[in-house]
Design a protein around this nucleic acid. Structure first.
Lengths: 134, 134
DNA sequence: TCCGCACTTGACGTTTACGTCAACGTAACA
DNA sequence: TGTTACGTTGACGTAAACGTCAAGTGCGGA
């Protein structure tokens, strides 16, 4: 039973709410490379995983070019030690980028929180003033 | 002494490492509206603050259109209570977006960390095997 | 007064990330 | 055996975010 689950282009486009065009575009850019059954694309579990990574990368604001460079970091490979070292180095670079993005995100969140509290405080004052006017 | 600090287009482009073209583009899109001294743009402290927010928004992956909608949330305004309520509602929406982005970012970080540990583990095994071969 | 340099406004070009046809193949189903 | 649905490959279109000229304006210094 090596009946591994596979997906048509429509399956994936429905599940992830993207168009088939998008999937073909990602393939064209070297982000995906599904098998073919005749002329038709047939995606497997690995393709699906990569697609999920791609879409999350996009939501985090990375370009397809950056994402393509990083996708391999998630492929467990059977390379040599030297390859593994380079992989680790690249991973550390990406980790740094992610951490600094988290820093900026945290700052943005804190600042917005402060702004909101300020407006809330002002609203409370107005409420109290209205009460006092009774 | 209301000598508030101001900046030329070049000042800001150098400080934030963007081109003057970019600053004019942002103005065209309604993100900035510096004063004019004759025909020249003259940016003040508030403009500079907005620019910093714009650039951070970009680094976090938001479009200029989104950023424009959110910039006003950071302007302390002298509006009515109804205005303040709408402001708070909009702020909460944005806060939700930021929090869920942080969630995705954290997941990405955790997954990459796991991958890295896996590769490190493999490297250690190789090291031990080499030692044992002595 | 003239030079040079920074600034200005168009206008068109470019890259990224797809959308949108057109024209065709194929596979299942009544 | 049609026809209906889904799939394919081009080819061209488009929105966002600028880059890159071109041609003119204004101003402080020799």
């Amino acid at each position: 039973m090596s009946e591994s689950k596979t997906y048509s282009i429509r399956d994936l486009s429905l599940e992830y709410d993207i168009t088939p065009r998008t999937l073909r575009f990602y393939e064209d850019k070297g982000l995906l490379s599904p098998l073919r059954r005749g002329t038709q694309r047939i995606y497997d579990r690995r393709d699906k995983g990569r697609l999920a990574l791609i879409l999350r990368g996009k939501r985090l604001g990375f370009s397809l070019a950056e994402i393509r460079n990083w996708l391999d970091l998630y492929d467990v490979r059977d390379g040599q030690v030297a390859q593994a070292r380079m992989l680790l180095d690249a991973s550390e670079d990406r980790m740094q980028a992610l951490l600094s993005q988290r820093e900026e995100l945290n700052q943005t969140i804190e600042e917005l929180k402060a702004q909101m509290q300020q407006v809330e405080g002002w609203l409370d004052e107005q409420g109290l003033a209205a009460e006092a006017a009774d």
